[in-house]
Computed example of a mutant assay.
Amino acid sequence: MTGAQASSDARSPDHDVVVTGSGILTSAGIGIAPNLDALCGEVPPLVDTTRFPPFPVHPAGEIDFSQQIPRKSDLRQMEPWQKLGVYCAGLALDNAGAKDDAALKADMSLIVCAGGGERDYDVDGQILTQISQQADQGAFLNERLMSDVRPTLFLAQLSNLLAGNIAIVHGVTGASRTFMGEEQAGIDAIRIAHARIRAGQADIVLVGGSFNAERADSLMVYELGGMLWKQPLAPVFSRPERGGGFILGSGGCFLVLESRAHAQRRGADIVARIDEIGADLARRQPGATAKMLEKLWAEVAPGPDAMVISGATGVKGRTEEERAALDRLAPGARILALQDAFGHLMEAQAPAGVALAAAAIARGDAPEAVVTSIGHQRGEGLIRLSRADAPARTGQEG
């Protein structure tokens, strides 16, 4: 059963899933306003081409993490990607008016989508330098792994650590769930949050993720897969004709989603409504991405006035098919690409798309918006949002 089909089971307006808060941090800045300006092309993107040549990155910049993570002991034990995530979660709670409500946060569910941990480059370098000089390389490696590599390095491969830090720092102690798996993790995290609220299994959920692009090891992994853009900055939809590729971006985004009834009871401001979510996994053969996008489009059923916020990666094949399908499905629609604003946030890209789509709708840019997430390697998803006061309709009615 797809997300769109599952979410159509309960249609009470009380169970409408609404966005009441968001916290976003990217190279474009902190908060909705600078990121929406960047998405709309009103300010140029910030890109660093000198730190990791030949690979450009969109850096997070200087951040005063103590504004959301006040205890130095908490900051010391977090890697950069965790700091970014905990910071964005705090922003979202502030934005939703939930930061100081301990009882509300105790019942709030938490869903995190994030990748793995970060290497200790100094230790790695020492081991690689010395291992060739050892008579018993296996014994040497085991000894160094036990004595020099932090246990949290291995645990950091689980996004559970980010969820745990959010619980510790911000007091969000309801049910917790975590996803890994790059772009698909972002779509699935939002899909599960949406389904739980729609089904009456949760009243309020904090959902999102983070990504640190400023890592030589990540750049190496993606370059080994032939995924990175190594040329001067260019719009994401124009890259495939020159080989294709994405530019990684540091940042994160968390959303506070809740049922309409719950939001109204606590007097929260409703930004927009999430109507339908479709997610699936196509076999990546020529034409498969376009075919899957058309299938999901029929399920979430955007209206003729919907704007499109694309998570397109720029990778050859997938990106051309996405754009061609969008041009057929939504001729004349305004299409904005997240990567042109702040790069690729991997797991956090879909939450960022939802945050900015909701803000654009609230600002009056369009009555509806569709967020796309076509994974660089696998996974496809669409999310339809609309004005909170618009009549609800299901994908099947489209």
Rank of each mutant, 00 (worst) to 15 (best):
249 G>E: 08
176 S>I: 12
201 Q>D: 15
162 L>V: 10
212 N>T: 08
257 L>F: 00
211 F>Q: 03
284 R>G: 06
208 G>Y: 02
202 A>I: 05
180 M>S: 09
187 I>P: 03
190 I>W: 07
261 A>D: 10
162 L>C: 10
218 S>N: 14
258 E>L: 02
176 S>K: 09
287 G>L: 11
224 L>G: 09
257 L>G: 00
286 P>E: 08
276 E>H: 13
275 D>Q: 13
160 N>P: 01
189 A>K: 00
172 V>G: 02
254 F>N: 05
157 Q>F: 13
284 R>K: 10
232 P>A: 11
190 I>M: 00
193 A>K: 04
196 R>F: 15
171 G>M: 01
278 G>W: 05
259 S>R: 05
157 Q>S: 14
244 G>L: 01
280 D>P: 01
233 L>C: 04
254 F>E: 09
179 F>C: 01
175 A>C: 06
261 A>C: 07
203 D>W: 11
188 D>P: 02
252 G>K: 00
181 G>T: 15
281 L>K: 10
211 F>L: 04
194 H>C: 03
271 V>C: 12
237 F>E: 10
224 L>P: 03
157 Q>M: 13
235 P>A: 14
274 I>N: 01
256 V>T: 13
240 P>G: 10
197 I>K: 00
213 A>L: 00
283 R>C: 13
256 V>E: 04
179 F>R: 05
250 S>G: 11
224 L>D: 09
168 I>K: 10
276 E>T: 15
191 R>K: 09
245 G>Q: 01
